[in-house]
Design a protein around this nucleic acid. Structure first.
Lengths: 121, 121
DNA sequence: CAGTTTCATCAAAGTGCCTTCTTGTCGCCC
DNA sequence: GGGCGACAAGAAGGCACTTTGATGAAACTG
């Protein structure tokens, strides 16, 4: 989300926007969904999300870690491995996000139909 | 939300991202919250959201209208006036969005604390 | 005619996520 | 030494939202 420099005159809306600025990013939702299953190492995530670049995965994970949704642990071993897991905060935000996902899937056709109608008019 | 050109390998996540790409924009939530109260004319919205530019308000409303969250009606009168109201789809998406808002407000301090800790580490 | 109101739109610059390409560090192995 | 795996990060370009500044169209009024 691009913030610009005019403040939204509503504290609550600003706060929602702040949350969405992080978890609304392109790769964040998928990453969090995977992490909600179990802890994943960086490389496992990268292999699972085949098409994501290292760069974007690193960036996404770092953003989620910074806001407290994800914990990062360096695993002891001969080869450096890093494990990520959802925090309690991360689990908690998935409740409304799952509700939103339900909406998105249930009403996908409505949105598409609305677009077609708008673009035709 | 910036989509780039690599597809997210999850239909559901893509669909959520699609919804958020519209309602997650900077001004959309506030506009929808106001519209959930009652129908508003363009100018009323503009005056209420004091700091928003005509340009952004127009753009935001057009996007919401295109995706079917908002209906636009030209009012008969001597001076052109346009009225916007939430559709059923618009009302329905506010249910998960309000849940997200609750999360955002309830856990605001957690997010802020996490950032401070991350930035200090 | 000029001014006002309402709403839409154009041009250009600012901003930050996304992508591509590349490099770097660490530990281990041959 | 070179190569590998794992993970992080820099530079540069792409792209669309956001902002700034301005213009335009329609109807009405003095």
């Amino acid at each position: 989300m691009k913030l610009g420099h005019r403040d939204i005159p509503s504290e609550a809306c600003r706060t929602v926007g702040d949350v969405l600025g992080q978890i609304g990013n392109k790769w964040s939702i998928l990453v969090m969904v995977l992490l909600s299953q179990r802890p994943w190492t960086f490389n496992a995530l990268r292999r699972e999300i085949d098409v994501i670049t290292q760069k974007m995965l690193t960036s996404t994970l770092r953003g989620l870690e910074r806001d407290g949704y994800v914990d990062r642990t360096v695993l002891p071993g001969s080869v450096v491995q890093v494990e990520y897991r959802l925090t309690e905060l991360g689990h908690d935000v998935l409740t409304p996000m799952n509700a939103l996902a339900d909406f998105a899937v249930d009403r996908r056709d409505d949105v598409i139909a609305a677009r077609a109608a708008y673009d035709a008019g």
